[in-house]
Design a protein around this nucleic acid. Structure first.
Lengths: 182, 182
DNA sequence: GTCTATACGAAGATAGAC
DNA sequence: GTCTATCTTCGTATAGAC
């Protein structure tokens, strides 16, 4: 039952892969469907056949990260606050490293994020994550958590200039210094 | 000698003012010259008369902040490292609050920042600022300083939802927690 | 399922009248 | 200095052939 048409999935996957590279390199706004089609070795029309518009391509690019983020939220939801904060820090660091290529794409779309309903779930989860990372209802702590996430979105870039382990150290250090005062 | 043609300066100033509002609201990429012209009450051609291209409009919008940043760099350059760090933290906080509306615009153009030569000076100064804020040559500290700047770029938004004093507290707290471990 | 061809609109930018 | 009109290019999307 897991047998899907190989050709279809192959083309679709290649489009997503190339789109991710282009979104990282030039940003979402500056990347055209033609750019994606050329990189994927197919026509613009083929891209539009698989995805109904550029926002749908973006949603597909972000999907793996969105799935992991949603799982993170489900894991920590309901736990005692201090425990939730610690686990959120650890798992978000994992997520940032695992999806480092995807994460920075989000930064480019922040100003127009509300106009892309395809990814509204990701936004909702992101705001919830801020709450768990903050570890309290204090507004300053919540703002610092959001700041940490924003900062990390930018720092996940430059894939060739930083190893995964270095990125992990950076994420972990930043979150703990900003939020746990340890 | 300070008497310039009133009409010319008035139109030019209005274009910059409206462009800043639009860049903040929708982001640089999503704002067209037509949007700016309509908001400023003139035609697209008039905008192009005053500024040779959209990047030039952006440079004009960022200019006051760029001037203050350059002054900051000149102030701390040559000072002992610990002193430079402390002054950089204080003055950058001042700058972020004073230019809060402008600062967040930068975040939208990060993916394409290298393609806008009109603002190369701003970028150079920003990287220098990271060095002064870090307070050491350690790569992790430098990365944390960059992360702090990136995070603050995003947090300066939502003008109506945070007072200047709250933003000041946020900036100061974030920088000190991330960088000074106090 | 994928392609070519094409329509449509919007963007940045220019020319020339006033 | 500012306008209208126009040019060119580009991005999105559709229609219809294969």
């Amino acid at each position: 039952m897991a047998v899907t048409t190989p050709a279809r999935e192959r083309t679709r996957h290649e489009i997503v892969r190339q789109a991710m590279d282009l979104f990282q390199a030039k940003g979402y706004n500056a990347t055209s469907l033609q750019d994606i089609a050329t990189a994927a070795g197919c026509s613009k029309a083929t891209v539009l056949y698989h995805f109904h518009g550029k926002p749908a391509v973006l949603a597909a690019v972000l999907e793996p990260a969105a799935v992991d983020l949603a799982a993170l939220i489900r894991t920590v939801d309901g736990l005692p606050r201090a425990v939730a904060q610690e686990i959120a820090i650890q798992q978000f660091t994992d997520l940032a490293v695992k999806h480092r290529g995807v994460v920075q794409v989000v930064q480019d779309i922040l100003p127009v994020i509300d106009e892309i309903p395809e990814i509204s779930g990701l936004i909702t989860d992101g705001m919830q994550l801020s709450g768990f990372l903050a570890g309290s209802d204090d507004q300053l702590e919540r703002d610092l958590a959001t700041l940490a996430i924003n900062g990390l979105l930018g720092e996940c870039r430059h894939p060739g200039e930083r190893t995964d382990e270095e990125l992990r150290t950076l994420c972990d250090t930043a979150l703990r210094r900003l939020l746990k005062r340890a």
